[in-house]
């Protein structure tokens, strides 16, 4: 097992996690858990696309964390609704809010495509979903992000999570 092979991917995993989770602490916890799991499972990796393999591990860890934190997550969504309806601030703050208001499924696809420049096939492998699902989540995710950034309150996202 060569941990050094994984190290070069840490900055990318951290960037993706930051965008996915929102806060720095939570994102780095996600990265840490992912790295630990990757080290434990390294014997299962077959020489090939190490990046996709690492992101697929991060996806699994993320899904598990979401399940564990479902209640907390819903509370967070309620809190987001209030500031969203008020006056818009900068684009970037709107982006943060909008990201946290779309469903995690869509967020993953949008971010892997935009930040990691993954192909649909790579995203499909990383998330364990068919390419058709990648495309539909991508278009719905992008659409919703745009609408949220234009000032729509994230009510629809609440419904999805429940």
């Amino acid at each position: 097992m060569d941990y050094q092979l994984i190290v070069p991917y840490i900055p990318n995993l951290r960037r993706y996690a930051r965008a996915l989770v929102g806060d720095r602490e939570g994102a780095d916890d996600l990265v840490q858990d992912t790295l630990e799991r990757a080290v434990r499972k390294f014997h299962l990796w077959r020489p090939g696309d190490l990046r996709a393999w690492l992101f697929s591990i991060m996806h699994n860890v993320f899904v598990n964390q979401l399940k564990a934190r479902k209640v907390a997550y819903e509370v967070e969504m309620d809190e987001i609704a209030a500031p969203m309806s008020s006056v818009t601030s900068t684009d970037l703050m709107d982006l943060d809010r909008a990201l946290s208001a779309i469903s995690p499924d869509q967020r993953e696809v949008v971010l892997l495509i935009a930040l990691e420049d993954m192909t649909y096939a790579e995203v499909g492998r990383a998330l364990g979903i068919p390419i058709g699902t990648v495309m539909s989540r991508l278009s719905r995710g992008r659409e919703k992000l745009r609408r949220l950034m234009e000032g729509e309150t994230p009510r629809s996202a609440l419904r999805i999570i429940q």
């Binding site: 900055p11 951290r14 960037r15 970037l92 949008v110 930040l115």
Partner: peptide
């Protein structure tokens, strides 16, 4: 949107691990 996401999150790449 892609540019905006990079603008927002690329700085993470430069943070010390």
């Amino acid at each position: 949107l892609r540019k905006l996401l990079h603008q927002r999150f690329d700085s993470v790449l430069e943070e010390p691990i």
